[in-house]
Design a protein around this nucleic acid. Structure first.
Lengths: 196, 196
DNA sequence: GTCTATACGCTGATAGAC
DNA sequence: GTCTATCAGCGTATAGAC
Protein backbone atom coordinates (compact mmCIF):
# COMPACT_ATOMS: atom_id res chain seq x y z
CA UNK A 1 0.00 0.00 0.00
CA UNK A 2 1.02 3.58 -0.53
CA UNK A 3 0.28 3.77 3.18
CA UNK A 4 3.82 2.51 3.71
CA UNK A 5 5.37 5.61 2.20
CA UNK A 6 5.57 9.16 3.51
CA UNK A 7 5.81 9.99 7.14
CA UNK A 8 2.69 12.05 7.48
CA UNK A 9 1.71 11.11 10.98
CA UNK A 10 -1.45 13.05 10.44
CA UNK A 11 -4.77 11.45 10.49
CA UNK A 12 -4.52 8.14 8.70
CA UNK A 13 -5.41 4.82 10.30
CA UNK A 14 -3.46 3.64 13.25
CA UNK A 15 -2.42 0.40 11.51
CA UNK A 16 -0.66 2.35 8.81
CA UNK A 17 1.09 4.63 11.23
CA UNK A 18 2.44 1.62 13.07
CA UNK A 19 3.51 -0.14 9.88
CA UNK A 20 5.21 2.93 8.51
CA UNK A 21 7.04 3.65 11.71
CA UNK A 22 8.16 0.04 12.02
CA UNK A 23 9.31 -0.20 8.42
CA UNK A 24 11.42 2.91 8.73
CA UNK A 25 13.00 1.70 11.96
CA UNK A 26 13.53 -1.89 10.83
CA UNK A 27 15.28 -0.73 7.69
CA UNK A 28 17.40 1.86 9.46
CA UNK A 29 18.55 -0.24 12.41
CA UNK A 30 17.52 -3.82 11.73
CA UNK A 31 14.68 -5.70 13.35
CA UNK A 32 16.50 -6.71 16.50
CA UNK A 33 17.76 -3.23 17.23
CA UNK A 34 14.24 -1.87 17.35
CA UNK A 35 12.09 -2.28 20.43
CA UNK A 36 8.33 -2.18 20.64
CA UNK A 37 8.74 1.06 22.55
CA UNK A 38 10.68 2.60 19.68
CA UNK A 39 7.88 1.78 17.26
CA UNK A 40 5.23 2.91 19.68
CA UNK A 41 6.95 6.24 20.23
CA UNK A 42 7.57 6.93 16.56
CA UNK A 43 4.04 5.96 15.54
CA UNK A 44 2.56 8.06 18.30
CA UNK A 45 0.51 5.23 19.72
CA UNK A 46 0.69 3.09 22.84
CA UNK A 47 2.15 -0.32 23.46
CA UNK A 48 -1.30 -1.74 23.98
CA UNK A 49 -2.45 -0.69 20.53
CA UNK A 50 0.45 -2.46 18.94
CA UNK A 51 -0.42 -5.71 20.66
CA UNK A 52 -4.07 -5.21 19.83
CA UNK A 53 -3.39 -4.76 16.13
CA UNK A 54 -0.49 -7.01 15.41
CA UNK A 55 0.07 -9.15 18.46
CA UNK A 56 3.64 -7.93 18.87
CA UNK A 57 6.75 -6.92 17.01
CA UNK A 58 6.92 -10.09 15.01
CA UNK A 59 3.33 -9.62 13.91
CA UNK A 60 4.25 -6.23 12.50
CA UNK A 61 7.15 -7.70 10.59
CA UNK A 62 4.86 -10.36 9.16
CA UNK A 63 2.28 -7.81 8.08
CA UNK A 64 5.00 -5.74 6.45
CA UNK A 65 6.33 -8.78 4.68
CA UNK A 66 2.92 -9.51 3.22
CA UNK A 67 2.29 -5.95 2.08
CA UNK A 68 5.68 -5.63 0.54
CA UNK A 69 5.35 -8.88 -1.37
CA UNK A 70 2.01 -7.73 -2.66
CA UNK A 71 3.65 -4.61 -4.05
CA UNK A 72 6.29 -6.68 -5.78
CA UNK A 73 3.68 -9.02 -7.12
CA UNK A 74 1.77 -6.13 -8.68
CA UNK A 75 4.96 -4.73 -10.15
CA UNK A 76 5.96 -8.03 -11.75
CA UNK A 77 2.45 -8.62 -13.05
CA UNK A 78 2.46 -5.20 -14.68
CA UNK A 79 5.88 -5.69 -16.20
CA UNK A 80 5.13 -9.14 -17.59
CA UNK A 81 1.70 -8.17 -18.87
CA UNK A 82 2.83 -7.87 -22.49
CA UNK A 83 4.10 -10.85 -24.42
CA UNK A 84 7.53 -9.36 -25.06
CA UNK A 85 10.00 -10.31 -22.33
CA UNK A 86 12.54 -7.81 -23.50
CA UNK A 87 10.09 -4.95 -23.07
CA UNK A 88 8.93 -6.36 -19.76
CA UNK A 89 12.48 -6.57 -18.52
CA UNK A 90 12.98 -2.93 -19.36
CA UNK A 91 9.85 -1.87 -17.53
CA UNK A 92 10.70 -3.93 -14.48
CA UNK A 93 14.25 -2.67 -14.12
CA UNK A 94 13.06 0.88 -14.71
CA UNK A 95 10.51 0.54 -11.95
CA UNK A 96 12.94 -1.06 -9.53
CA UNK A 97 15.40 1.77 -10.07
CA UNK A 98 12.62 4.30 -9.64
CA UNK A 99 11.50 2.71 -6.39
CA UNK A 100 15.05 2.60 -5.09
CA UNK A 101 14.82 6.40 -5.09
CA UNK A 102 11.20 7.01 -4.16
CA UNK A 103 10.46 4.07 -1.91
CA UNK A 104 13.83 3.03 -0.50
CA UNK A 105 12.39 1.56 2.68
CA UNK A 106 10.18 -0.80 0.73
CA UNK A 107 13.07 -1.86 -1.47
CA UNK A 108 15.39 -2.32 1.48
CA UNK A 109 12.87 -4.53 3.23
CA UNK A 110 12.70 -6.70 0.11
CA UNK A 111 16.34 -6.79 -0.92
CA UNK A 112 18.33 -6.24 2.27
CA UNK A 113 16.35 -7.64 5.18
CA UNK A 114 17.10 -11.17 6.33
CA UNK A 115 13.56 -12.23 7.10
CA UNK A 116 14.57 -15.65 8.27
CA UNK A 117 16.28 -14.06 11.21
CA UNK A 118 13.07 -12.72 12.69
CA UNK A 119 10.21 -14.52 10.99
CA UNK A 120 10.39 -18.20 11.89
CA UNK A 121 9.54 -20.66 9.15
CA UNK A 122 9.59 -18.00 6.47
CA UNK A 123 11.05 -19.22 3.20
CA UNK A 124 13.62 -16.96 1.53
CA UNK A 125 11.89 -14.05 -0.13
CA UNK A 126 13.21 -15.08 -3.53
CA UNK A 127 11.10 -18.19 -3.40
CA UNK A 128 7.99 -16.06 -3.10
CA UNK A 129 5.46 -15.69 -5.89
CA UNK A 130 6.79 -12.66 -7.77
CA UNK A 131 10.30 -14.06 -7.99
CA UNK A 132 9.11 -17.49 -9.00
CA UNK A 133 7.00 -15.88 -11.69
CA UNK A 134 10.03 -14.16 -13.15
CA UNK A 135 11.97 -17.35 -13.32
CA UNK A 136 9.07 -19.20 -14.91
CA UNK A 137 8.80 -16.51 -17.54
CA UNK A 138 12.49 -16.90 -18.29
CA UNK A 139 12.11 -20.63 -18.76
CA UNK A 140 9.23 -20.00 -21.12
CA UNK A 141 11.24 -17.46 -23.08
CA UNK A 142 14.13 -19.88 -23.42
CA UNK A 143 11.80 -22.52 -24.80
CA UNK A 144 10.47 -20.30 -27.55
CA UNK A 145 13.82 -18.89 -28.58
CA UNK A 146 13.25 -15.43 -27.13
CA UNK A 147 16.28 -16.02 -24.90
CA UNK A 148 19.43 -18.05 -25.23
CA UNK A 149 19.22 -21.57 -23.81
CA UNK A 150 20.89 -22.35 -20.53
CA UNK A 151 20.40 -23.24 -16.93
CA UNK A 152 17.29 -21.41 -15.69
CA UNK A 153 18.99 -20.10 -12.56
CA UNK A 154 22.02 -18.89 -14.45
CA UNK A 155 20.01 -17.14 -17.13
CA UNK A 156 17.61 -15.55 -14.65
CA UNK A 157 20.46 -14.37 -12.47
CA UNK A 158 22.18 -12.91 -15.48
CA UNK A 159 19.09 -11.12 -16.70
CA UNK A 160 18.25 -9.52 -13.37
CA UNK A 161 21.45 -9.83 -11.38
CA UNK A 162 23.06 -6.59 -12.41
CA UNK A 163 19.93 -4.55 -11.67
CA UNK A 164 19.38 -6.17 -8.30
CA UNK A 165 23.00 -5.67 -7.39
CA UNK A 166 22.81 -2.01 -8.34
CA UNK A 167 19.74 -1.54 -6.19
CA UNK A 168 21.54 -3.12 -3.25
CA UNK A 169 24.62 -0.98 -3.76
CA UNK A 170 22.48 2.11 -4.08
CA UNK A 171 20.57 1.33 -0.89
CA UNK A 172 23.88 0.78 0.89
CA UNK A 173 24.95 4.24 -0.15
CA UNK A 174 27.81 3.10 -2.35
CA UNK A 175 26.32 4.29 -5.61
CA UNK A 176 25.74 7.98 -5.11
CA UNK A 177 23.90 8.86 -8.29
CA UNK A 178 20.21 8.07 -8.73
CA UNK A 179 19.74 4.81 -10.58
CA UNK A 180 17.01 5.75 -13.09
CA UNK A 181 19.56 7.52 -15.27
CA UNK A 182 21.30 4.15 -15.69
CA UNK A 183 18.26 2.15 -16.67
CA UNK A 184 18.93 1.94 -20.40
CA UNK A 185 22.56 1.01 -19.93
CA UNK A 186 21.77 -1.64 -17.34
CA UNK A 187 19.02 -3.16 -19.43
CA UNK A 188 21.11 -3.15 -22.58
CA UNK A 189 24.06 -4.94 -20.98
CA UNK A 190 21.85 -7.55 -19.36
CA UNK A 191 20.08 -8.27 -22.58
CA UNK A 192 23.31 -8.53 -24.50
CA UNK A 193 24.26 -11.39 -22.20
CA UNK A 194 21.12 -13.45 -22.68
CA UNK A 195 20.09 -12.60 -26.23
CA UNK A 196 19.40 -15.70 -28.31
CA UNK B 1 42.15 -18.89 8.11
CA UNK B 2 41.31 -22.49 7.38
CA UNK B 3 40.69 -22.53 11.10
CA UNK B 4 37.20 -21.22 10.30
CA UNK B 5 36.23 -24.38 8.49
CA UNK B 6 35.53 -27.87 9.75
CA UNK B 7 34.01 -28.55 13.09
CA UNK B 8 36.75 -30.61 14.58
CA UNK B 9 36.46 -29.51 18.17
CA UNK B 10 39.55 -31.49 18.85
CA UNK B 11 42.66 -29.88 20.03
CA UNK B 12 43.15 -26.67 18.12
CA UNK B 13 43.50 -23.27 19.78
CA UNK B 14 40.68 -21.93 21.82
CA UNK B 15 40.37 -18.77 19.71
CA UNK B 16 39.63 -20.83 16.64
CA UNK B 17 37.11 -22.99 18.40
CA UNK B 18 35.26 -19.90 19.51
CA UNK B 19 35.40 -18.30 16.08
CA UNK B 20 34.24 -21.40 14.32
CA UNK B 21 31.37 -21.98 16.72
CA UNK B 22 30.29 -18.36 16.47
CA UNK B 23 30.47 -18.28 12.69
CA UNK B 24 28.33 -21.38 12.37
CA UNK B 25 25.75 -20.01 14.79
CA UNK B 26 25.71 -16.49 13.38
CA UNK B 27 25.15 -17.79 9.89
CA UNK B 28 22.50 -20.28 10.91
CA UNK B 29 20.42 -18.06 13.19
CA UNK B 30 21.68 -14.51 12.77
CA UNK B 31 23.83 -12.56 15.18
CA UNK B 32 21.03 -11.42 17.46
CA UNK B 33 19.53 -14.86 17.86
CA UNK B 34 22.77 -16.21 19.25
CA UNK B 35 23.71 -15.66 22.87
CA UNK B 36 27.14 -15.73 24.38
CA UNK B 37 26.07 -18.85 26.18
CA UNK B 38 25.21 -20.56 22.90
CA UNK B 39 28.67 -19.87 21.56
CA UNK B 40 30.31 -20.89 24.79
CA UNK B 41 28.44 -24.17 24.86
CA UNK B 42 29.13 -25.03 21.24
CA UNK B 43 32.79 -24.12 21.46
CA UNK B 44 33.20 -26.11 24.65
CA UNK B 45 34.70 -23.22 26.57
CA UNK B 46 33.50 -20.96 29.34
CA UNK B 47 31.97 -17.50 29.27
CA UNK B 48 35.05 -16.07 30.90
CA UNK B 49 37.29 -17.29 28.09
CA UNK B 50 35.15 -15.57 25.53
CA UNK B 51 35.44 -12.26 27.30
CA UNK B 52 39.14 -12.80 27.81
CA UNK B 53 39.79 -13.42 24.14
CA UNK B 54 37.34 -11.20 22.36
CA UNK B 55 35.79 -8.91 24.94
CA UNK B 56 32.30 -10.09 24.14
CA UNK B 57 29.99 -11.16 21.37
CA UNK B 58 30.57 -8.10 19.29
CA UNK B 59 34.30 -8.62 19.51
CA UNK B 60 33.89 -12.08 18.04
CA UNK B 61 31.84 -10.68 15.18
CA UNK B 62 34.53 -8.11 14.51
CA UNK B 63 37.29 -10.69 14.51
CA UNK B 64 35.28 -12.84 12.13
CA UNK B 65 34.70 -9.88 9.87
CA UNK B 66 38.41 -9.19 9.68
CA UNK B 67 39.35 -12.81 8.98
CA UNK B 68 36.71 -13.19 6.36
CA UNK B 69 37.72 -10.01 4.56
CA UNK B 70 41.30 -11.21 4.58
CA UNK B 71 40.20 -14.38 2.83
CA UNK B 72 38.36 -12.42 0.20
CA UNK B 73 41.32 -10.12 -0.24
CA UNK B 74 43.61 -13.06 -0.89
CA UNK B 75 41.14 -14.53 -3.33
CA UNK B 76 40.80 -11.33 -5.32
CA UNK B 77 44.54 -10.76 -5.32
CA UNK B 78 45.09 -14.24 -6.70
CA UNK B 79 42.43 -13.83 -9.35
CA UNK B 80 43.66 -10.44 -10.52
CA UNK B 81 47.31 -11.44 -10.47
CA UNK B 82 47.53 -11.89 -14.23
CA UNK B 83 47.04 -9.02 -16.61
CA UNK B 84 44.05 -10.57 -18.35
CA UNK B 85 40.79 -9.53 -16.71
CA UNK B 86 38.79 -12.10 -18.60
CA UNK B 87 40.92 -14.90 -17.21
CA UNK B 88 40.84 -13.34 -13.75
CA UNK B 89 37.09 -13.12 -13.86
CA UNK B 90 36.87 -16.78 -14.68
CA UNK B 91 39.16 -17.74 -11.82
CA UNK B 92 37.30 -15.55 -9.36
CA UNK B 93 33.83 -16.83 -10.22
CA UNK B 94 35.10 -20.39 -10.19
CA UNK B 95 36.54 -19.91 -6.74
CA UNK B 96 33.42 -18.22 -5.41
CA UNK B 97 31.29 -21.10 -6.65
CA UNK B 98 33.71 -23.58 -5.16
CA UNK B 99 33.63 -21.84 -1.79
CA UNK B 100 29.86 -21.71 -1.84
CA UNK B 101 30.05 -25.49 -1.59
CA UNK B 102 33.09 -26.05 0.57
CA UNK B 103 33.00 -22.98 2.81
CA UNK B 104 29.37 -21.93 2.89
CA UNK B 105 29.60 -20.30 6.31
CA UNK B 106 32.37 -18.01 5.17
CA UNK B 107 30.46 -17.07 2.05
CA UNK B 108 27.26 -16.50 3.97
CA UNK B 109 29.03 -14.21 6.40
CA UNK B 110 30.29 -12.18 3.46
CA UNK B 111 27.27 -12.13 1.20
CA UNK B 112 24.28 -12.56 3.51
CA UNK B 113 25.10 -11.03 6.87
CA UNK B 114 24.03 -7.45 7.54
CA UNK B 115 27.11 -6.34 9.45
CA UNK B 116 25.79 -2.86 10.03
CA UNK B 117 23.13 -4.34 12.26
CA UNK B 118 25.60 -5.59 14.82
CA UNK B 119 28.91 -3.86 14.16
CA UNK B 120 28.48 -0.14 14.79
CA UNK B 121 30.22 2.19 12.40
CA UNK B 122 31.08 -0.58 10.00
CA UNK B 123 30.86 0.49 6.37
CA UNK B 124 29.02 -1.87 4.01
CA UNK B 125 31.20 -4.83 3.19
CA UNK B 126 31.17 -3.96 -0.50
CA UNK B 127 33.13 -0.83 0.23
CA UNK B 128 35.93 -2.94 1.70
CA UNK B 129 39.26 -3.41 0.01
CA UNK B 130 38.67 -6.52 -2.09
CA UNK B 131 35.47 -5.17 -3.59
CA UNK B 132 36.97 -1.77 -4.28
CA UNK B 133 39.86 -3.48 -5.96
CA UNK B 134 37.55 -5.30 -8.32
CA UNK B 135 35.80 -2.12 -9.31
CA UNK B 136 39.10 -0.33 -9.85
CA UNK B 137 40.25 -3.12 -12.10
CA UNK B 138 37.09 -2.79 -14.12
CA UNK B 139 37.63 0.94 -14.58
CA UNK B 140 41.16 0.22 -15.73
CA UNK B 141 39.96 -2.41 -18.16
CA UNK B 142 37.40 -0.02 -19.61
CA UNK B 143 40.08 2.57 -20.19
CA UNK B 144 42.29 0.23 -22.19
CA UNK B 145 39.50 -1.25 -24.28
CA UNK B 146 39.50 -4.62 -22.57
CA UNK B 147 35.88 -3.98 -21.57
CA UNK B 148 33.07 -1.99 -23.09
CA UNK B 149 32.79 1.60 -21.86
CA UNK B 150 30.08 2.52 -19.41
CA UNK B 151 29.26 3.55 -15.91
CA UNK B 152 31.71 1.80 -13.57
CA UNK B 153 29.01 0.62 -11.21
CA UNK B 154 26.83 -0.70 -13.99
CA UNK B 155 29.65 -2.54 -15.70
CA UNK B 156 31.00 -4.00 -12.47
CA UNK B 157 27.55 -5.11 -11.39
CA UNK B 158 27.00 -6.71 -14.75
CA UNK B 159 30.31 -8.52 -14.72
CA UNK B 160 29.89 -9.99 -11.23
CA UNK B 161 26.19 -9.60 -10.52
CA UNK B 162 25.03 -12.90 -11.89
CA UNK B 163 27.69 -14.88 -10.02
CA UNK B 164 27.01 -13.12 -6.74
CA UNK B 165 23.29 -13.59 -7.15
CA UNK B 166 23.79 -17.29 -7.82
CA UNK B 167 25.89 -17.65 -4.71
CA UNK B 168 23.19 -15.96 -2.65
CA UNK B 169 20.46 -18.14 -4.13
CA UNK B 170 22.55 -21.22 -3.54
CA UNK B 171 23.22 -20.30 0.08
CA UNK B 172 19.51 -19.68 0.57
CA UNK B 173 18.83 -23.20 -0.64
CA UNK B 174 16.94 -22.17 -3.77
CA UNK B 175 19.47 -23.50 -6.22
CA UNK B 176 19.83 -27.15 -5.38
CA UNK B 177 22.65 -28.16 -7.67
CA UNK B 178 26.28 -27.37 -6.82
CA UNK B 179 27.40 -24.19 -8.51
CA UNK B 180 30.82 -25.21 -9.85
CA UNK B 181 29.19 -27.10 -12.72
CA UNK B 182 27.74 -23.76 -13.87
CA UNK B 183 30.96 -21.79 -13.80
CA UNK B 184 31.65 -21.74 -17.53
CA UNK B 185 28.12 -20.81 -18.42
CA UNK B 186 27.94 -18.05 -15.85
CA UNK B 187 31.27 -16.60 -16.88
CA UNK B 188 30.43 -16.77 -20.57
CA UNK B 189 27.13 -14.93 -20.19
CA UNK B 190 28.63 -12.23 -18.01
CA UNK B 191 31.44 -11.65 -20.41
CA UNK B 192 29.11 -11.49 -23.38
CA UNK B 193 27.43 -8.55 -21.70
CA UNK B 194 30.53 -6.50 -21.13
CA UNK B 195 32.75 -7.49 -24.02
CA UNK B 196 34.15 -4.46 -25.86
C1' DG C 1 -10.00 0.23 21.38
C1' DT C 2 -6.55 2.85 23.73
C1' DC C 3 -3.72 3.73 27.37
C1' DT C 4 -0.21 3.23 31.73
C1' DA C 5 2.11 0.59 34.92
C1' DT C 6 4.06 -3.55 36.03
C1' DA C 7 6.05 -8.30 35.86
C1' DC C 8 9.18 -11.55 34.23
C1' DG C 9 12.70 -13.77 31.39
C1' DC C 10 16.73 -13.50 28.94
C1' DT C 11 21.24 -11.81 27.81
C1' DG C 12 25.40 -9.42 28.11
C1' DA C 13 28.75 -8.64 31.29
C1' DT C 14 31.51 -8.98 35.81
C1' DA C 15 33.61 -10.82 40.16
C1' DG C 16 36.31 -13.68 42.24
C1' DA C 17 37.96 -18.61 43.16
C1' DC C 18 41.14 -21.86 41.16
C1' DG D 1 44.09 -18.15 31.57
C1' DT D 2 39.96 -20.69 32.63
C1' DC D 3 36.03 -21.43 35.12
C1' DT D 4 31.26 -20.80 37.91
C1' DA D 5 28.03 -18.00 40.04
C1' DT D 6 25.81 -13.80 40.07
C1' DC D 7 24.12 -9.14 38.77
C1' DA D 8 21.93 -5.43 36.38
C1' DG D 9 19.37 -3.77 32.45
C1' DC D 10 16.53 -4.21 28.71
C1' DG D 11 12.69 -5.68 26.08
C1' DT D 12 8.53 -8.40 25.47
C1' DA D 13 4.29 -9.09 26.98
C1' DT D 14 0.24 -8.66 30.13
C1' DA D 15 -3.18 -6.68 33.47
C1' DG D 16 -6.42 -3.74 34.30
C1' DA D 17 -8.25 1.19 34.32
C1' DC D 18 -10.52 4.32 31.24
Amino acid sequence: MHCLENDTTTGDPIDCRILRAALALFVARGFHNVSVHDIQRRAGVSVGSIYNHFGGKEGIARALYAQVLQQMEALVAEALAGSDLRAGHRVLVGRLFEWAETRPALMAYVFQARHREFLPDTPPICSAAPFRRLRDRVVEAMACGELCRGDPWVVTSTLFGNAIRLVQLRLDGLVDAPLPARTEETVALAWRAVAP
